[in-house]
Amino acid sequence: MTLTVQDISVARGGIAVLEGVSFTLTPGHALVLRGPNGAGKTTLLRAIAGLQSTLRGDISAPEGGLVYAGHADGIKPTLTVVENLAFWAQIFGTTHIDTALAAYELTALADRAAGALSAGQKRRLGLARLLVTGRPLWVLDEPTVSLDTHATGLFAAAIRAHLAQGGAALMATHIDLGLDEAEILDISPFRASAAVLDSFDEAFL
């Protein structure tokens, strides 16, 4: 269940954004990607999740062991909170949605239509989906957006419990979750250098 990324390059919109990224993520560990806006965090995470092709390099992710959570939560507004979660539980072949609801304090909202939730509550529902998938490797893109301090604490607790069970998490986030076991990888040194002519004059000489 180890994720190994070797020397990969990824492109967005036809332009290489990252080059030569390598890291290994073993069970029980979390890796936090840091970098300024536009550095290529989302592109890298999508490539690891298999939603995008890479220019070069190898990604060896555990087969069927990965779950991805992007900027959008994939919530259907006309379904209730429970129906949304139960759907994903069925898709991933699991049953325990009650613990996921409790972990993000959504039990009281269980029968409310997801469209009537606030942005932070929707995000909590999106994160609760990770718990019902039962997959060991979480790939998270900005998981704490629109969460308040308390909900961020719930998320950190969920990550900690997941790591304790032998899971792993790879996430791009700007805030400090207070996770001592998390390693930090700054991806700005891997920024791809655009192919620029060494000297303007040489082009004419």
Partner: peptide
């Protein structure tokens, strides 16, 4: 499904 991100999530599902 594309707009609310479910399609990405379904594509990475079993």
């Amino acid at each position: 499904d594309w707009e609310d991100g479910s399609l990405d999530l379904l594509a990475t599902s079993p």
